[in-house]
Design a protein around this nucleic acid. Sequence first.
DNA 1: GTCTATAGTAAGATAGAC
DNA 2: GTCTATCTTACTATAGAC
Lengths: 193, 193
Amino acid sequence: MARPPAAREKILAAYCEIVSSEGERAATLEATAARAGVSKGGLLYHFKSKDALADGVLERLGQAAEADLARMRASPEGPSRYFVRTSVETGTELDTFFVVVMRLAAGQHPGAAEALAAVHGSWWQLIREEVGDDAVADTIMLIGDGIYHHAAMPGSGSTGSTAGYFRGRLDAVLEQVDELRALARARTASGAG
Amino acid sequence: MARPPAAREKILAAYCEIVSSEGERAATLEATAARAGVSKGGLLYHFKSKDALADGVLERLGQAAEADLARMRASPEGPSRYFVRTSVETGTELDTFFVVVMRLAAGQHPGAAEALAAVHGSWWQLIREEVGDDAVADTIMLIGDGIYHHAAMPGSGSTGSTAGYFRGRLDAVLEQVDELRALARARTASGAG
DNA sequence: GTCTATAGTAAGATAGAC
DNA sequence: GTCTATCTTACTATAGAC
């Protein structure tokens, strides 16, 4: 897999930035080209259509998700904590692509909803293996989704790499994830799992 | 407050339906007018611009949220359970407006993000009063947000009034909400709150 | 590989008839 | 209060020069 042309990457990045910060509608070919520092014609050399641009993001989401899954699997704190903790992080490669694909899914872009579901399913499986209980895996996923929902919400006050609302509150939420995890283990140990 | 013209309501409903199911971009004046059974000119008599249409939804969200808050306050099961349980419901009046305003917020519509934050803040306060602990109120809100995140996600398989994924799983999640609530009360009682 | 120029289409909004 | 007709603008995409 050779490195793709630099212009292609700049265009994809520009498209993602506009979709994330101003919405899918604002990411016109002209606006994307301008932000990437190329002309409309130059953009269309690399991506034959607007849909091709969106498909490019879908592909990159898959790659970023695979890398994240490997980190999650190797994480010393365990998949649950890793998942909840990183749900609050904005600005990572994975986060960027995830937000963009969510916006594309809202606009019924073909394949976007499926791509999100696939990533989500992989996360769930890792957490399920760790906690050994479907319902607790569901709840932990929901907490992470809820945090993500906040982080991805416009006007959530995220100034840096972390959504403003949860700066300082994340630790308390993580403690409750631990408690749920402990409850699940106790239940499994007592044979009710 | 006299009943507004029937056409106005039909137009607003048509706009919401298209934004929810096909995305904001698909909700053009023409498409909205067609679904409402009026012409573009007819639509523009009631709403002077596309922005006015969106502002109409913001206003209705406020009304629906007020009504929901009253039900939440009066609910015998308590605000926490009420909030989490109703987060899975799709197709209610409040849900419809909430999803639409979320899409508008994603497109940077002025006031949309603020409207969502206001509704969210009211919910949090009621739950905070019930559980008596900031962190547990946060976590319960996150679980509800996570469910909502799923329910609002396109392709979540919602066929009726409930998101498909959580049909049959909601009870197990609600039990864990009870557990978190119990933990918070125990903590408060022991003076560590 | 990137540009300019332009064709073709669709959107938001206005004017005036009924 | 609702319609048709029309204006204007903006967007996607193509063609061909450099």
